[in-house]
Design a protein around this nucleic acid. Structure first.
Length: 756
DNA sequence: TAATCGATCTTTTTT
DNA sequence: AGATCGATTA
C-alpha cells in the first residue's frame, strides 16, 4: 500500500514507521536522512492521518527547509501544508504573532550582527569597533546558551567586569526600540511560552509532530525552545550526526544530541549506517580519521558503493601548484573522451578559509574554467544595500534608533552629531510612544535652521513612503534613477531616490567604477514581490534578514561550473569529485587548535571527505604564502592520522611522512609521479595517470603500461574475448601475470599511459 | 566631507 | 598580500 516505502532500507523504514516514544535518528553521512524525514512527513499525513498543519519540521538553513518541502510534497502533495521552517524563521513567525506579548513594536525589524554592533556603539561612544564586535559576539553567544544578563553562568561566556551591565543596557535599549536580534528569535519565544501557559498549551496542541534536522548543530536555546514546544503527547523526532557537528564556535552544543535520550526519557534510537554516497575507499578514509575523536556516540558506516579508487593525496610545492593541480585535474576530466568524462559541475574545490579561494579563482579564470564561489556573495552587507534597508526599517519601526542614526544625515543634510543627540534626547523624553517616533522628535527638537531644514527633508521622504504604503500618494512618474515595477518596489524606489541615496551612490559609481546603483536596483526589483503595505514591508525585511541567499540571476542552479566552497558550507551537499585543499598544519587544522577545538576541526575534515561520491583528491603544500610571507608547511595532522595504505600518494612526500615504511603507496607515489609530476604541463602525460580509469572497454591497448599497488608496474600482454566481455591479460615487471575483466574496477589498478 | 595614508590584523559563520 | 579602520589632511 505504501510503494514509496519499498525503496527504503530496513532501518530507514523502521525510522519512518516508528511511533510512540521520542526518536533519535543517528544518520551517518550520506545515509539518506533527508529521504527519511521527507518520507516520514508524507507517511504521517497519508497513512496516519495527521493534519499537515500539525507537523512542524525545523532545519538550520533555508535551503534545507526548501529542499525538504519540495521533496516531501513530491511524495505527498498535502505535505506543503506542514510547517517547514528554520529555527529562526519559526521564532520570527511566533514573535510576529505575539509581538505585543513580547513587548515588541508591531513592525519590528530583525537586527543583524552589524546592527547589533551599531546599537552597542550608541551605548559606548568612542569604543573601537573591534571591541564592540567582541561584545556583540559575546552577547550573541550568551543568547545561544540561553543566558540573560542576570544569569550567574554568564561569566562563562565573558567574565569581563563590565560585560554583564553592558548586556543589560543593550537589552534595555533594544527593548525601547522594539526590535530584535537573531538570538532573540529563539530566546524570546522560550521566555514567552514559559510565562504564558495558555499560549504554550495552544502551540503544543497544534503541533503533534516535531522533527528536527541537523540536531547536532542545535544550541542550548534551541533545545529549550523544543522543550517548551513538546507536549506530553507530542511526537519528537531528531535527526543528526554527532560526527558532523561543526558549529561549536557558534554555540552549537554537541551535548544536545549526546544527551537527547536523557533529556527525553524513553527515546528510541535508530542508526542509519549505510552510506549510499561515497565509494568505499573514500568512506574508509573518513571513518579512520574521525575515529581519532573521543566522546562519540559511535557509528560504523558501511559503504554501499563498492569499488572506486583510493583517494589521491598530492604533495605539491606551493599554493600556485595546488591551483594548477586542481585546474589540470578538472580540465583533463572534462575533455576526456571516454565514458569517465566529467562535467564541470561534478567538481568542487574545498578550502578551510575564504581567503584561499582567490588563488583558485585566478587560475580558473586563466584557463577559462567556469566556476561559482559559494557563500562569498555578500550582497546584503554592501553599504548601499544596508543604507536602503535602514530606510525601510525606519519606515517599519520609526523607533529604530540604529537605522535613524545611519540615515538621517546620509547623504549630508546638515544634521550633525550634536543635532542627532538632541533629537534622540527629545525622543526619549517625550516621544517614546509616538507613532512617528524619532521623526516626530526630530521635527519638534530645537535645532539649528540648517539642521531643521535637513530634518524636514528627511521626514518628508519617509512620510511620502508611508503614504505610498497606505495608498494615499500617487506613484511617482518623475524620472528616477531606479525603475520600479509592482507592489512594494514603488515605495522602495521612492525612498531610495527621494532620500538622495540613489544619487549619492551613483556619483560614487562614476568615480570609483562601483555598481551600487545596479545593486540598489536589484533590491528594488526584489521588493516587487511583496505587497505595498506595512505588512508587506515587514515581510520583505524579514525575508531578507532570515534568508540572505540570493538566486544568482544570470546563473541558474544547473549552470555547469566548478564549485568553490569553504568546508563549513559543504554540509548537506555532495559532489562526484572533490578536491580538499590546504591540508597543512596551521591551515587545517589551525595550529591554535587543541582538545575539543581540534576534534571539531577533525569533524570538519570528516564532513569534507564524506561529500565526495566518486573521486577524492587531497592537497598538501610544502610552502604557502600567508600574511604576505612564504613559509614552509607541514602536512595536516589529519593526513598523518590516515593509514597510508588508504591513500595513493603522488608528489614529493615530505621526509618522515610514511615514506620510511616503503609501503606500496609510498613507493608508488615516487615512481608514478616521476612522469606524473614532471609532465605537469604536458598535454597527455602528467595526471592522466591519476584520472584515468580502468573500467571502460576499448580503452585497453596491448603494450599499455599499468600500475598495481601490490604488483608494481606491468604492461598489458593481450586482450582476449571472454564470456563476460573482454579479458585483459597483464604481465607485471616482477614476472607475475594476471587476468581480469575489462569491466573490473579496482582501486589498486591504474592505467598510466601507453608509453613508459 | 571626502580622500588618503599608515597601522593593524588576519577562521569557520546555516540564522 | 590585502582588507579594513581610524586618524590626518585638504
Amino acid at each position: 500500500m505504501c510503494e514509496y516505502l519499498d525503496s527504503l532500507n530496513p532501518e530507514q523504514q523502521q525510522a519512518v514507521l516508528h511511533d510512540g516514544k521520542s526518536l533519535l535518528i543517528l544518520a551517518g553521512a550520506g545515509s539518506g536522512k533527508t529521504r527519511v524525514i521527507t518520507t516520514k512527513i508524507a507517511y504521517l499525513i497519508r497513512e496516519r492521518g495527521f493534519p499537515p498543519a500539525s507537523i512542524l519540521a525545523v532545519t538550520f538553513t533555508n535551503k534545507a527547509a526548501r529542499e525538504m518541502a519540495a521533496r516531501a510534497s513530491r511524495i505527498e502533495a498535502r505535505a506543503c501544508g506542514a510547517m517547514l521552517k528554520t529555527f529562526h524563521s519559526f521564532g520570527a513567525w511566533f514573535l510576529r504573532r505575539n509581538a505585543a506579548l513580547a513587548g515588541l513594536h508591531p513592525g519590528f525589524v530583525i537586527y543583524d550582527d552589524d546592527d547589533a554592533v551599531s546599537l552597542l556603539g550608541t551605548l559606548l561612544e568612542d569604543t573601537p569597533k573591534i571591541e564592540l564586535r567582541k561584545i556583540a559576539a559575546d552577547i550573541s553567544r550568551a543568547k545561544d546558551y540561553f543566558l540573560s544578563p542576570e544569569d550567574p553562568e554568564l561569566d562563562l561566556v565573558d567574565h569581563t567586569p563590565g560585560f554583564r551591565g553592558l548586556y543589560a543596557r543593550y537589552e534595555e535599549k533594544k527593548r525601547k526600540i522594539g526590535n530584535v536580534d537573531f538570538g532573540d528569535l529563539i530566546k524570546m519565544p522560550v521566555e514567552i511560552l514559559r510565562n504564558n501557559a495558555g499560549l504554550a498549551a495552544g502551540l503544543r496542541d497544534r503541533f503533534s509532530v516535531i522533527m528536527v534536522d541537523e540536531y547536532q548543530d542545535s544550541n542550548v536555546a534551541q533545545f529549550r525552545l523544543l522543550y517548551e514546544l513538546k507536549g506530553k503527547t507530542t511526537y519528537l523526532c531528531a535527526v543528526g550526526d554527532d560526527d558532523q557537528s561543526i558549529y561549536r564556535f557558534r554555540g552549537a552544543e554537541v551535548k544536545n544530541i549526546l544527551e537527547f535520550p536523557d533529556r527525553f526519557p524513553g527515546t528510541d534510537i535508530i542508526r542509519l549506517e549505510r552510506n549510499y554516497r561515497s565509494f568505499a575507499p573514500i568512506l574508509n578514509l573518513a571513518s579512520q580519521v574521525v575515529n581519532h575523536n573521543s566522546g562519540r556516540l559511535g557509528k560504523t558506516l558501511t559503504a554501499c558503493r563498492a569499488g572506486g579508487k583510493k583517494p589521491v593525496l598530492a604533495f605539491l610545492p606551493d599554493q600556485d601548484e595546488e591551483a594548477r593541480f586542481c585546474a589540470e585535474l578538472i580540465g583533463r576530466s572534462v575533455t576526456d573522451a571516454g565514458p569517465e568524462r566529467a562535467r564541470y559541475s561534478d567538481w568542487a574545490i574545498f578550502y578551510r578559509t575564504n581567503a584561499q579561494s582567490r588563488g583558485f579563482e585566478t587560475e580558473l579564470v586563466w584557463r577559462r574554467i567556469p566556476y561559482r564561489v559559494v557563500g562569498s556573495l555578500k550582497f546584503y552587507e554592501r553599504e548601499e544595500i544596508k543604507d536602503a534597508l535602514a530606510l525601510f526599517a525606519l519606515l517599519a519601526n520609526p523607533r529604530d534608533e540604529v537605522a535613524f542614526r545611519r540615515m538621517v544625515n546620509k547623504p549630508a543634510r546638515g544634521i550633525g552629531g550634536a543635532s542627532v543627540e538632541k533629537i534622540i534626547d527629545v525622543f526619549e523624553k517625550q516621544f517614546l510612544f509616538s507613532e512617528k517616533g524619532l521623526l516626530e522628535a526630530a521635527r519638534q527638537a530645537a535645532l539649528s535652521p540648517k539642521a531643521a531644514a535637513g530634518v524636514k527633508v528627511f521626514a518628508g521622504v519617509l512620510d511620502r513612503g508611508r503614504a505610498l504604503l497606505a495608498g494615499k500618494a500617487d506613484r511617482l512618474s518623475a524620472r528616477m534613477p531606479l525603475k520600479s515595477g509592482e507592489g512594494l518596489s514603488v515605495c522602495a524606489a521612492a525612498l531610495i531616490c527621494d532620500s538622495g541615496l540613489a544619487g549619492y551612490h551613483s556619483s560614487h559609481d562614476e568615480v570609483n567604477g562601483y555598481q551600487r546603483t545596479e545593486n540598489l536596483q536589484e533590491l528594488v526589483d526584489a521588493a516587487s514581490l511583496y505587497p505595498a503595505s506595512m505588512d508587506g514591508l515587514a515581510e520583505f525585511l524579514e525575508h531578507i534578514e532570515l534568508d540572505r541567499s540570493i538566486e544568482e540571476k544570470n546563473r541558474p542552479e544547473d549552470f555547469d561550473a566548478v564549485t568553490l566552497i569553504t568546508l563549513h558550507n559543504t554540509k548537506g551537499l555532495e559532489f562526484r569529485r572533490v578536491v580538499l585543499t590546504g591540508l597543512e598544519q596551521g591551515i587545517f587544522p589551525r595550529d591554535d587548535k587543541e582538545a575539543d577545538d581540534l576534534e571539531e576541526e577533525r569533524r570538519l575534515f570528516y564532513v569534507g571527505v564524506t561529500r565526495a561520491m566518486d573521486e577524492l583528491y587531497l592537497c598538501s603544500c610544502a610552502m604557502r604564502r600567508m600574511y604576505g610571507r612564504t613559509q614552509p608547511m607541514l602536512p595536516s595532522l589529519f593526513l598523518r592520522e590516515a593509514d597510508k595504505s588508504l591513500l595513493r600518494i603522488i608528489g614529493a612526500a615530505p621526509a618522515g611522512f610514511g615514506a620510511g615504511k616503503g609501503g606500496a603507496a609510498g613507493t608508488h607515489g615516487q615512481a608514478g609521479c616521476g612522469t606524473g609530476y614532471g609532465g605537469y604541463g604536458a598535454e597527455n602525460g602528467g595526471y592522466g595517470a591519476v584520472t584515468g580509469k580502468s573500467s571502460s572497454d576499448g580503452r585497453w591497448k596491448q603494450g599499455e603500461r599499468v600500475f598495481h599497488d601490490d604488483q608494481g608496474y606491468g604492461s598489458i600482454a593481450g586482450i582476449e574475448e571472454g564470456e563476460d566481455g573482454p579479458v585483459i591479460k597483464v604481465r607485471f615487471d616482477n614476472g607475475h601475470e594476471t587476468r581480469f575483466l575489462s569491466t573490473y574496477q579496482s582501486s589498486k589498478f591504474t592505467k598510466i599511459g601507453s608509453e613508459d
